[in-house]
Amino acid sequence: MLKLTLPNFKLGFVLTMLLLAGGCATSVERMDAGQVKDLSGAWNDTDSQQVSEEMIRDVLSRGWMAEFMNNKNRQPALIVGEVRNLSHEHINVNTFVADMERALINAGKVKFVASSTERNEIRTERKDMDLNASEATRKAMGQEQGADFMLKGTINTIIDASGSTQVRFYQVDLTLINLVDNNKVWIGQKKIKKLVERSKLRF
């Protein structure tokens, strides 16, 4: 058993005080957005970027787009539906969905129409134009482009834990569904697996 004598105690006290005094100032370090830094093992920016990279590469390289162009002779119009978060974490899905939108639009291959959450504001604005904007600049109602495909998805996780060790498995599935016949024309999938060891001791 640990025997506490006064000198021991004094020494311990001084050490404790030194520990308490150390490490007080805030430090900031700029990082590249692509740099990997895992802190807690939870879903982070790196995961989101990996997902969007994989999905963009995949969606652009598949045949659905060429097929549509051959049949209809125009670019397909896409709409972003709901990406459901069915995981163990509160994950912001907007980041990789926005990444995908950007990459697809900028590649000049597809068009995106405003999603259901975005278009209400636009419609209100159009209604307002009807009343207030000049004849020449007024935009008429009923001219919206209908989407051909809807992008939907889910994020699922499986967590296996024992003691302070956890295996976290994420699976992101994105699907493009043809709005005419409900056919799924593309399914993208990204799996991420992490081993997280939680520390058992701290100061």
């Binding site: 404790t16 520990l19 308490l20 807690s40 939680r198 520390s199 058992k200 001791l201 701290r202």
Partner: peptide, 24 residues
């Protein structure tokens, strides 16, 4: 509450210093 959850996660590891203090 989310902040509390994060803090609990951080405190999951046992503190050597605090436990030493709690002994005296």
């Amino acid at each position: 509450l989310e902040a509390a959850k994060q803090e609990m996660n951080r405190l999951y590891a046992t503190s050597i210093r605090e436990n030493a203090l709690s002994f005296v």
